[in-house]
Amino acid sequence: MSVKPILQPGIPAPEFTLPAINRKSEEINSRHPAEVSVFVFFGSEMTGPITAQLGDYQERLKDYEVKKARLIGISNASGDALENLAEEKQLTFPILHSDLTGGPAYSYGVVDGGQILPVVFVVDPEGVIRRVFDPDPAEGLPNPAMVLRAITNLSNAPKPPVIAADDWRLGPADAPIVLIEYGDYQCSHCRDLFNVVKDLMPIYKDKLQFIFRHFPMRHAHPLAIMAAQAAEAAGIQGKFWEMHARMFAADNDLETEKLRVYAQEIGLDPERFSADLTSPAVESAVMDEYREATKHKIKSPPTLFVNSILFDGAHTLENLGHKVAGLLSCLD
């Protein structure tokens, strides 16, 4: 049996329906649009520490319910063994049996050496994996309080609005990996990230889509708003990305007259560009995007999301490439 990698945050959680061993005649579906789902995987070799930890999860069950999160245990142990476990530890959250070759244990990548690894997944109501607690042979299952903190952090974490038809995009719309950047043309870190994305896109080609959204820091970067409007004005003439690249290459030389020079360099109609640059529609496009970002807890540029999950590593080609490659390996 081939070994699949453990699924990572940002991957859609595979859907399944299984009967609950300890809740007779009840079918449990992995998707629940109103709740966070916590999948607690464990193997058939139910050692004392593992069974004790499952008892700890039961003790915290009401805390999970307060957070609108449901616990689901999944194991390759026999039905009889799982029934005995549920009775011994008085487990009232659903306990499911998973085959190793075609069940959720395999599809979530937690099978190794004929056993299910002790891994916990936190899945949001949209069905996207948001947090993974990797297996630790010494510790077994993570402390349920740690998982609860992760659930709390979901509501506090920035998350981009859904992709819209008028987003500025590079790459195919059906690409499995989507990068969304909130950026500022007067931000040197945004310029560095621009160069990383420029090098990354050709490597992954049809596997990667990049979306840029405006987040001009009005007070710290006084030229950023007009630069964002210049990109929008260029977009009206079909050259958003050309202006995007030209302004990052300008090294913060973004005064309004220079923006008009750049517009001519990339072949825009200068009169139309000047008219659009300060038009109410273009001004609104920039500021509406900024305000929407702040509503979603985005605070500063560059903020980068990979498949809607905040990328909190250094914005280097190595780090971002490693992240993209890891997600793609989960989809093979």
Rank of each mutant, 00 (worst) to 15 (best):
E271T: 12
A314H: 09
S25C: 02
A81M: 10
E87D: 13
D251R: 15
L223W: 10
N84D: 14
F210H: 14
L91K: 04
Q264Y: 00
G127Q: 08
T278H: 12
S155T: 10
L54G: 05
H322V: 08
D80V: 13
K297N: 15
E292P: 03
I298N: 04
I151G: 06
I116Q: 00
V123D: 01
R246S: 10
M247W: 00
T152R: 11
L96F: 07
F305R: 08
G114T: 02
L96T: 05
L54F: 03
E255G: 09
S329R: 14
A173R: 14
F39Y: 12
M217N: 12
R149V: 12
P158N: 08
A220V: 11
G43H: 01
G102N: 15
G267F: 03
V324F: 03
G238R: 01
G113T: 11
D206C: 07
A81W: 00
D276E: 13
P125L: 06
K323P: 00
F39D: 01
M217T: 12
I129E: 02
A231H: 06
E283V: 10
S300A: 15
G103M: 04
K323V: 11
V40H: 03
P161K: 04
L54S: 01
R130Y: 09
I298V: 15
I6S: 05
F215C: 06
A231M: 11
I21H: 00
P142L: 05
Y106W: 13
D269K: 07
R272Q: 14
A145K: 11
V196W: 03
F39T: 02
D80F: 12
L223Y: 07
W168F: 11
G235Y: 04
E292N: 14
S274V: 12
K258R: 15
I6T: 12
S107I: 02
R169M: 13
K67R: 15
M226E: 08
A250L: 02
L7N: 09
R246Q: 11
P5C: 10
V3I: 14
C187K: 13
P9I: 10
H221N: 11
G267R: 02
T101D: 14
T101V: 10
L268F: 02
Y185H: 15
M146T: 08
S25I: 05
T294P: 06
F42V: 01
A281F: 07
F210Q: 06
A52I: 04
S188Q: 14
D184T: 12
D184N: 13
V282H: 01
K198H: 15
A20P: 02
D134A: 13
V111E: 00
E181C: 04
Y182F: 15
D276P: 08
S300D: 04
Y182H: 08
V162A: 14
F240L: 06
P94Q: 07
